[in-house]
């Protein structure tokens, strides 16, 4: 079945590149250990390394979009099948990478101070940080964050495939300038910062920081936003032609 072959093809690509990615990650994680062995312990610490998994999946989704579409169209695989494969693939990769991150946390947490981004963000959560529930929350949070950003990559890849060169440049530079400079400036000037404050409150709510500390809000938010981005990416892809 084409979906099965398409899935295997995309997973193979991720595994190949993932191998290079993890050799760099483990080189970074092992460095404090090597230094400790050579020069004695100097209070080595690592934190937030798992954010690299999020970035990796996003970048992979963007960079493989066009190549995968060409490969599939060459080999009797429709865009519908490609869309299904991307969704399954990114979820599988997100779950897999989160398991590896969890393993790294367990392993390197015994060797030096190792803090994940989840534990730093949710340090005031009212469940024991060494308990099974905390680990489960951490895994869910991490995997859904990975999935969400992988879908962001898919959406960006799909969008850029459809846009002309001029529009691509406009989006690449225009969106960050608008979000980082233009929107806050206009908001403060015209609306006394109401929009920015509202966006801030919405983000805090989605991450589970309104009304106490609850990371499950973030899990649901990441999954919801991820599915929305997947849907938009799918809508763009279903009638896409391969651009040069």
């Amino acid at each position: 079945m084409q979906l099965s072959t398409a899935f295997h093809y995309q997973i193979r690509t991720k595994l190949k590149v993932g191998g290079i990615f993890y050799s760099i990650i483990y080189a970074i994680l092992l460095l404090p250990v090597v230094i400790s062995l050579l020069y004695g312990s100097h209070g080595a610490a690592a934190s937030g390394i798992e954010i690299s998994s999020v970035v990796f999946l996003m970048v992979m989704s963007i960079s493989t979009y066009k190549e995968d579409m060409r490969m599939f169209l060459q080999n009797a695989t429709s865009r519908k099948t490609m869309i299904a494969s991307v969704g399954l693939n990114c979820m599988a990769a997100a779950l897999g990478m989160s398991i590896i991150d969890l393993f790294n946390q367990f392993l390197f947490g015994h060797l030096y101070t190792y803090e994940t981004m989840f534990s730093q963000m949710y340090e005031f959560i009212t469940i024991p940080s060494n308990g099974a529930l905390f680990t489960l929350y951490s895994f869910l949070w991490s995997s859904m964050a990975c999935f969400c950003f992988a879908m962001l990559g898919f959406f960006i890849g799909a969008l850029f495939n459809r846009l002309s060169k001029m529009w691509r440049l406009l989006v690449m530079f225009g969106v960050p300038i608008a979000v980082i400079f233009l929107l806050p400036f206009l908001d403060i000037t015209l609306f006394d910062g109401v929009i920015t404050a509202s966006i801030g409150r919405a983000i805090m709510f989605m991450l589970g920081f309104q009304n106490g500390v609850n990371p499950l809000y973030a899990v649901v938010s990441f999954l919801g936003v991820g599915l929305l981005l997947y849907l938009f990416g799918a809508l763009i892809t279903r009638r896409a032609a391969v651009s040069d």
Partner: peptide
């Protein structure tokens, strides 16, 4: 957009899709 129909066809084109 039909995998079953497309499996009956192969196009070798000037452009490289691999």
């Amino acid at each position: 957009e039909n995998d079953q129909a497309q499996r009956l066809v192969y196009l070798m084109s000037e452009k490289t899709f691999y």
